[in-house]
Lab assay of single mutants.
Amino acid sequence: QIFVKTLTGKTITLEVEPSDTIENVKAKIQDKEGIPPDQQRLIFAGKQLEDGRTLSDYNIQKESTLHLVL
């Protein structure tokens, strides 16, 4: 699982696999929060994550925290 922290300070927990794409993660966030993926920007280690890449591409491991910017 990974954590996604929103600007409001809320933390969302997501069940993911390293092979999941960023697009996939955004879809999971939409399921939980109702935020359309095209409004979501995910930041990890100061980098904006691209939809077509996977979590493992960015070396995002379990218990990692991503930041969600709208």
Rank of each mutant, 00 (worst) to 15 (best):
F44H: 07
L7M: 13
L66W: 02
K62S: 14
F44I: 03
F44S: 03
K62V: 12
K10H: 10
V25I: 12
L66A: 02
I2W: 02
R41V: 14
T21P: 05
D20M: 13
I29H: 00
K28G: 03
I43K: 05
N59Q: 09
Q48N: 11
G9H: 05
A45V: 06
D31F: 10
T65S: 05
E17K: 14
G52T: 09
G52W: 13
L66Y: 02
Q30L: 10
L14K: 00
K28L: 11
Q39M: 11
K28A: 07
L49K: 00
I12H: 03
T13K: 08
L55C: 06
A45W: 08
K5L: 14
R41N: 15
P18E: 11
I12N: 01
Q1N: 11
E63W: 12
L7V: 13
S64T: 08
A27V: 11
F3D: 03
L55M: 06
T54A: 06
V16T: 05
E23A: 15
E17W: 13
K62C: 08
V4F: 03
I12A: 02
S19I: 07
G46V: 02
L66I: 13
T21L: 10
S56Q: 13
T21A: 04
G34S: 05
S19L: 09
Q61F: 09
G46R: 04
T6M: 14
E63Q: 11
F44E: 02
D51S: 07
L14M: 04
K10D: 07
S19K: 08
V25F: 03
T8W: 11
D38Y: 12
V69N: 06
K26T: 02
I43T: 10
K26S: 01
T6W: 12
E50N: 07
E63T: 06
D20V: 04
G34V: 02
G9L: 04
K47P: 01
E17P: 03
K26H: 02
K5R: 12
L42A: 01
L14Y: 02
P18Q: 09
L55H: 00
S19T: 14
A27P: 00
V25P: 00
F44L: 05
A27R: 13
V4Q: 00
I35L: 06
T6F: 14
Y58F: 04
T21F: 07
T21V: 04
E50S: 08
L68P: 00
I29T: 01
V4G: 01
R53Q: 09
Y58C: 05
L70A: 10
Q40L: 06
L7I: 14
T13M: 10
G46M: 05
S19Q: 09
L70Q: 10
D31S: 11
F44T: 02
T6E: 04
G46H: 06
V25C: 05
D31L: 14
I2K: 01
E50Q: 10
V25S: 00
F44M: 04
N59I: 03
L70K: 08
T65C: 10
K32S: 10
A27T: 10
E23W: 13
I43H: 10
N59M: 07
G9W: 04
I43D: 05
P37G: 08
I12V: 06
V4P: 00
G9S: 04
P36T: 06
K5D: 04
E50W: 05
G34Q: 06
V16R: 02
L49F: 02
L70I: 12
K47E: 15
V69R: 08
G9T: 03
R41L: 14
K32M: 12
E33S: 11
H67V: 14
K32D: 03
P37W: 11
Q1E: 07
E63Y: 15
K26L: 04
G46L: 04
L68Y: 02
A45T: 05
A27H: 13
Q39G: 06
K47H: 14
G34A: 05
K28Y: 07
P37Q: 10
I12Q: 02
N59E: 08
K47W: 09
E33R: 04
I22V: 12
T65R: 04
L55Y: 01
Q1R: 13
K10I: 09
D51N: 09
Q39E: 11
K5P: 01
L42F: 03
T21G: 03
E33F: 09
K5S: 09
S19W: 14
G52D: 11
H67S: 07
Q61W: 08
Q40A: 05
K5G: 04
D38L: 08
G46K: 04
H67I: 14
T21H: 04
L70Y: 11
Q30F: 15
P37L: 15
D51V: 05
I60F: 03
G46A: 04
V16K: 01
L42H: 00
T8C: 14
S64H: 08
Q40R: 02
K62F: 12
G34F: 04
Q30Y: 15
Q61V: 14
L7E: 14
S64I: 05
Q30R: 15
E23I: 11
T13I: 14
L7W: 14
Q40W: 06
Q40I: 13
E23Y: 13
N24W: 09
I60Q: 01
Q61C: 10
T8I: 08
K28W: 05
Q1D: 05
I22E: 01
D51Y: 04
P18D: 10
T54D: 03
K10G: 08
N24L: 14
E17C: 14
S19R: 07
D57T: 05
Y58V: 02
D51L: 05
I22L: 05
K47C: 14
K62I: 09
E17T: 13
V25N: 00
R53G: 07
K32L: 11
S56I: 10
K5M: 13
N24K: 14
R53S: 07
P18L: 15
A45P: 01
P36E: 07
G52H: 13
K26C: 02
L49A: 02
K62W: 09
A45R: 11
K62P: 13
P37N: 07
E15N: 14
Q48S: 11
V16E: 00
D57L: 03
D38R: 09
L42D: 00
K47N: 09
Q30N: 09
